[in-house]
Design a protein around this nucleic acid. Structure first.
Length: 429
DNA sequence: TCTGGGGTCCTGCTACGA
DNA sequence: TCTGTCGTAGCAGGACCC
């Protein structure tokens, strides 16, 4: 078996770097992209902002306290997606085996490209040059014999931040097969993909703090502590075993939309109104991806204790119709007590199937669909028309009647992604 | 204190049929 | 017919990732 050559590419402070392309005057200053309201979190921070202790997932309120002079930007998901698709195209020039992990990260299996393009570290360096030249963006690349080693290697390639300012990174970091154990051994267990605070705490109770400690632990002790599947997986990783292939075109397994409100909601009517918007958004995205889902899920998070509950149920057949999803979400909402104050509501769909071409025969026209009295093919036609109108005139051009104002104008915003709620006064029109 | 949004995967429980 | 067991599916919740 010949060793594989896997690259893991990670764009440096991606969202911020894209913003700087459009606002070069902010270069070299602290910039934070993320929710701008009271309940948002940081999605990305420039290395200048990181020197003040700001990091992603930190509440924006905390970031403002640590670095009040930073420029806070709300984030433009569609712009990042557009740049990301060009980056992925560059990666696919090197190999068709590109597995995007997110907008700013991907695995590349270049094993089959070595004869044509040279050794993996040279491919990595060439890719960095191309991304810099064509997109004006910096990225870091990890090279290793497996996905997991390549990903860890990237951490050693990235820039950093110290209290005195940004620290340049190596750009490319290579771990060759012979060096895997020496590379892994001293790393903290938290460096392993899949070890978060909860698992780290359990491992600490077993006296495990480094990957080397974990590798020496009997697999059965590990399974007893963290569960069967997780235990086996971590034991293999700690011993440098990871044969997961780089898989392009992974099909999505769920589609969801959730929102945290700037101010808690207590009324049933308000929650219902949000459900209309979210079900519409999820359905539109399903149709855009030619998918349909069978299990509908509802998520409600209370402010009190940050407690989250979820309810789900499985339909007789898969759907991409907002009304069907809405009806099920409403049923799941049922008699939940909303009086403590709801900070987040979400609607999602799982158990996805490819939405095969619709049967346009007259079969089944006599039965009403689950959610409305209208006939299924009529609903399909209506949904198609809505999708077409939105494609031509924008997302706000048409939407569920319940979301319209008295004058018939609505802010439907079905698919917009945000990084936290807007400030109260900006929300809802 | 404060903790987004969109995901994946795993676990524990229950119900159910063979 | 009753009882235990096993595999599987559905569901709720949690951990984790970027």
């Amino acid at each position: 078996v010949t060793a594989r050559s896997i690259l893991h590419i990670d764009l440096d402070a991606f969202f911020v770097s894209v913003e700087l392309l459009d606002r070069p005057e902010l270069r070299g200053t602290p910039v934070v992209v993320g929710g701008t309201g009271q309940r948002g979190v940081v999605a990305a921070a420039s290395y200048e902002a990181r020197s003040y202790g700001v990091h992603s997932a930190m509440p924006t309120v905390t970031a403002r306290r640590l670095c009040p002079q930073a420029t806070f930007l709300p984030g433009r998901h569609s712009r990042y997606a557009e740049v990301s698709s060009r980056l992925m195209a560059i990666f696919r020039d090197v190999t068709p085996l590109v597995e995007p992990l997110s907008l700013d990260e991907a695995f590349l299996d270049v094993t089959g490209s070595l004869r044509r393009l040279g050794p993996a570290p040279s491919i990595a360096a060439a890719l960095r040059d191309r991304v810099a030249k064509e997109e004006g963006l910096a990225c870091s690349v990890g090279v290793g014999p497996s996905k997991f080693i390549a990903k860890l290697a990237t951490e050693h390639a990235k820039p950093g931040a110290s209290p005195t300012g940004p620290v340049p990174g190596r750009g490319v970091f290579v771990v060759v097969p012979d060096e895997v154990s020496a590379f892994l051994g001293p790393l903290p267990v938290g460096a392993l993909w899949g070890v978060g605070p909860a698992t780290r705490e359990r491992l600490a109770r077993l006296g495990v703090s480094t990957v080397g400690d974990l590798a020496r632990l009997p697999v059965d002790a590990l399974r007893a502590s963290v569960g069967d599947a997780v235990g086996r997986h971590l034991h293999a990783l700690a011993n440098g075993r990871d044969d997961r292939p780089v898989t392009p075109d992974l099909a999505p397994k769920s589609v969801s939309h959730e929102e945290t409100f700037a101010v808690d909601i207590r009324s049933f009517d308000e929650v219902q109104r949000e459900l209309v918007r979210m079900a519409d958004s999820v359905a539109a995205r399903l149709r855009a991806s030619n998918l349909r889902g069978r299990t509908v899920g509802l998520k409600v998070r209370y402010s009190e204790g940050f407690r989250t509950i979820s309810r789900s149920s499985t339909l007789h057949e898969a759907t991409d119709d907002g009304l069907v999803i809405l009806a099920e979400a409403r049923r799941l909402l049922g008699d939940l007590d909303l009086s403590p104050g709801v900070r987040l509501v979400g609607v999602g769909v799982t158990k996805l199937d490819a939405g095969e071409a619709r049967q346009l025969s007259f079969d089944g026209l006599d039965q009403p669909s689950d959610a409305s009295d209208r006939r299924p093919t009529e609903r399909t036609e209506a949904n198609r028309a809505v999708d077409e109108i939105r494609r031509r005139f924008g997302r706000d051009a048409i939407g569920p009647g319940r979301l319209a104002n008295d004058d018939g104008v609505g802010t439907f915003e079905p698919g917009g992604r945000q990084w936290g709620p807007l400030d109260g006064e900006d929300q809802g029109t």
